[in-house]
Write a protein that binds this DNA or RNA. Sequence first.
DNA 1: CCTATGTCAGCACGACTGATATTC
DNA 2: CGAATATCAGTCGTGCTGACATAG
Lengths: 144, 144
Amino acid sequence: MNVDMLMELAHDYREILRQSVYLTRALDSDGELSTAQVSTLNMVSTEPQRVSVIARNAGIRVPSATEQVIKLEAAGLVRRIADDSDARVVLVELTDAGRAAVDRSNAVRNRRMADALRTLDEAERATITAALPALAKLNGALSP
Amino acid sequence: MNVDMLMELAHDYREILRQSVYLTRALDSDGELSTAQVSTLNMVSTEPQRVSVIARNAGIRVPSATEQVIKLEAAGLVRRIADDSDARVVLVELTDAGRAAVDRSNAVRNRRMADALRTLDEAERATITAALPALAKLNGALSP
DNA sequence: CCTATGTCAGCACGACTGATATTC
DNA sequence: CGAATATCAGTCGTGCTGACATAG
């Protein structure tokens, strides 16, 4: 693939991605949780995580992660606990209410996306399925 | 494709998309123009467009598009002109400075994305190319 | 002493809704 | 008249930097 074709593909994919950003946010419109909140909750859903780890995984700065955590705590969806081995560290843990909320939100979002996918024909869905591994690898290449 | 497979595809694609959203934020920091501004400029780069058309293409509300246009006009990158056939309409047109700025920003961002695409092999890039039309249609299906 | 971790304060950007003109 | 188009005003969510307290 020559340079011109690479640049064209880069441009086209960027455009698709830009639209998706807006649509993903709208996907959450009638829900109780924002996309950022669901992401944060998903990160602590298997085990408690440090604020700094949440920030790194989300690609945001630590103060921004702190803010998210504080809001989620106020909503009763997570709690902040101490780390016995390091008193500077704050671990963020999902509450029962948080687990219920994140499960519910994930289900709603998946269903809406599935509904949109259903409007495509089989061949179109196949191209998306085939591209997912490459897109995942591309994301890896974009990571800092 | 049965329901379970649809939900799985929905989940997998959502996960890819979530990562991409955060990664492209870093990609799109070139210091001069924001992502939203580049998007707006791109929309008027071939011919003048109505504010309402810009809003629809961007997936945002008309007042939000107006706000973007006003900021771009203040920066000297676009100008607002009247539509002879309908006095309610405002057409947004790129200035020479706007064209230079958007060309520069697109080049920087496309080059970064192209660099990432270059780490994929030819077959992987082909799957992405093949999926773009379906992804665009999917975005259309997700639009409200 | 220097670094790591988290929080607070203040700010910027970009979206939204609701309320107007103005024109068709 | 009602509908369409754009703008204005005010608000909210979510990111940022810089300053700070505390712990290692």
